[in-house]
Every structure is written in structure tokens, then in C-alpha cells.
């Protein structure tokens, strides 16, 4: 019984990790007032870049680094169009996603049947072999720990550091931030690049750790879910973590139900993770004033420093 529960927790975290990483990146982007809908595309580019580099070098961590760079490069394209040239952020972000989906499928074509050396779960002999605590705490993929550390880091940065304060100020009122002398566009660039790097990392986790292979469109919509998570988590890092894990848990539960042969239409079950995550996060964040306090007031609005 305990072992089953531990197994469920472990799987939940493993399934939730790409969402955590991608959503935390997007959270920072949106807190700076920029809406980048290109997460799905940046994740796919990260996944395929990481996979290809690992196939050729047999060095999965080099693959991870490549994925981060590739995700950030995609984000740079978006930043040039949407931040510097002030194009519509929604349209540019959607275009970025479509670009990423198509480009990753094209580039990844020759690698569909390839195998890689995956990033393996850690194994620290005395700790990892402890009963219960071992698999519960000390036997995850390293990137799972990275995702938790990232949540803590983003939380500290946003709410307890001066740089985080400046970032929030830019997302709240770029005009005011500009008037007291902050470089709004530079700050937004940095945030967008960070978001791209996170999306790339999330993609690498999928193609190098979670399911170490490449297949076209392998993110299967996780980028979009990450976007929704940021909103339903009302732009707060720990809620992103919670929402992503909840999503992972309900996804697993849905498979359990199907495996147990319970007669529910599979389409309804497939809906469950989305519905459950939305309901829980919406219920948690029903305080309107708190939402206002945490949501970036100028989200999605381009800023022209010269006017």
C-alpha cells in the first residue's frame, strides 16, 4: 500500500516537472508585462535540440545546455518582434508556437528512431535505498530537483530581491518604471530570454529524461497547459508548483481508473486533469484584491519609451 502511494507520488512529480519548469519561466515573463504564447514551440525546439546534441555527443548534459540555448534563441526572436518592434504579443506568440512545432518536426525527422543516453535518476546508495524515504526523496531525476529549486529561486527573486521588485514594477506600470529611470525594454528582454531558456529546459526534460526519445509534437500540449497554469496560479511560483503536480496526479489517476476497468468514457477522463486543476486553483485564488496585487497590470501591452 505504502509502496503504491510512494510510486504515485514519484510518478506525479515526474509528470509535473516539465510543467513546473516551463510555467515558472512564463511566470517571470508575464510578471514583466509580456505575454509569450510561444511556450509550446520553445519547448519543442528545446526538446529536439537537446535530443540531437545528445545523439551526436552522447553527453546528455551538453544536450540540456543546447536545449536551454535553443529555447532562449526562440525567445530572442519573439523579443525582437514583440518587445522592440512592439508587434501584437498574442499574434507573435502564436506564430512562435507554430514556428516551433513545424521547425522541430522538420529538424527532428532523421532522429525519430534514434536512441540517446538518457539523464538517469540519481542513485545515492545509502539514502536512495532507504525504505519509503529513499524512493520518496532521493531517487528522482536530477531535473526534478532542479524544478523545485527553480520554484524556490523564482519565489525568492520575485518577492524578496530588489531585481525582482524592479521586474514586478515594470510589469505593473512600464511608464512609471521608465519615468523613474529603469530600462524597461532591457528588463523585458531579460525576462523573455529567461522564459525561453526555461521552456527549452522543460523540453529537454521530456526528450532526455521523462521519455528519452524524439517524436513529432512530443510535448502534446504541455506548453499550453503551462500557460494556463500561470494564470490560474495567479502569477505565484508556489501555486505553479502545486498546480503542476496536481495536474500530474490527476493525469495519473485517470490512467489508473482506465486500467482498473471502470466504465467512464475515456474522453471524460481525459478532461479531468484540466478541470481539476482549474477548479482547485480558481478556488484558491478567489480573493479579487489578492489577484489584482499579484497580476501584472500591463500584461500584453507593448511599451514605447519615446512617447
Amino acid at each position: 500500500m505504502i509502496d503504491t502511494l510512494v510510486g504515485i507520488v514519484a510518478l506525479t512529480l515526474a509528470a509535473g516537472t516539465p510543467l513546473v519548469i516551463a510555467a515558472l519561466g512564463e511566470l517571470v515573463v508575464e510578471r514583466s508585462g509580456v505575454l509569450n504564447l510561444g511556450v509550446e514551440g520553445m519547448m519543442l525546439i528545446g526538446a529536439v535540440a537537446g535530443f540531437i546534441v545528445t545523439v551526436h555527443t552522447h553527453m546528455p548534459w551538453l544536450g540540456v545546455a543546447a536545449a536551454i540555448v535553443a529555447g532562449a534563441a526562440m525567445a530572442l526572436v519573439f523579443a525582437i518582434v514583440a518587445v522592440s518592434l512592439q508587434a501584437n504579443q498574442v499574434a507573435s506568440g502564436l506564430a512562435l508556437s507554430l514556428l516551433g512545432i513545424g521547425l522541430s518536426a522538420f529538424v527532428g525527422q532523421p532522429y525519430v528512431a534514434a536512441v540517446v543516453d538518457p539523464i538517469k535518476a540519481i542513485n545515492w546508495p545509502p539514502l536512495s535505498s532507504l525504505p519509503v524515504l529513499g524512493p520518496l526523496l532521493f531517487a528522482y531525476n536530477p531535473l526534478v530537483y532542479v524544478s523545485v529549486a527553480l520554484a524556490a529561486g523564482v519565489h525568492l527573486f520575485l518577492l524578496h530581491s530588489r531585481a525582482g521588485l524592479v521586474l514586478r514594477a515594470v510589469g505593473e506600470s512600464p511608464r512609471s518604471a521608465h519615468a523613474i529611470g529603469y530600462r524597461v525594454l532591457a528588463i523585458r528582454y531579460a525576462a523573455v530570454l529567461f522564459g525561453g531558456a526555461c521552456a527549452g529546459l522543460a523540453g529537454a526534460y521530456l526528450s532526455l529524461a521523462f521519455t528519452p526519445l524524439w517524436s513529432e509534437g512530443m510535448t502534446s500540449g504541455r506548453g499550453w497547459i503551462a500557460l494556463a497554469l500561470v494564470v490560474f496560479a495567479t502569477w505565484r511560483p508556489y501555486r505553479v508548483l502545486l498546480g503542476a503536480w496536481l495536474f500530474g496526479a490527476v493525469t495519473l489517476a485517470q490512467f489508473q481508473v482506465q486500467a482498473a476497468g471502470i466504465e467512464i468514457a475515456p474522453q471524460l477522463l481525459a478532461m479531468l486533469p484540466y478541470a481539476a486543476t482549474i477548479v482547485v486553483l480558481a478556488w484558491m485564488s478567489r480573493d479579487a484584491a489578492a489577484i489584482r496585487r499579484h497580476s501584472p497590470a500591463s500584461l500584453g501591452k507593448p511599451f514605447h519609451p519615446q512617447r
Binding site: L165, S176, A177, A297
Partner: peptide, 8 residues
């Protein structure tokens, strides 16, 4: 027009 941030 004040350069203040309402949510802070």
C-alpha cells in the same frame, strides 16, 4: 500623473 505602482 504619479509614477507609483498600485500593487506594491
Amino acid at each position: 500623473h504619479f509614477s507609483l505602482f498600485e500593487s506594491l
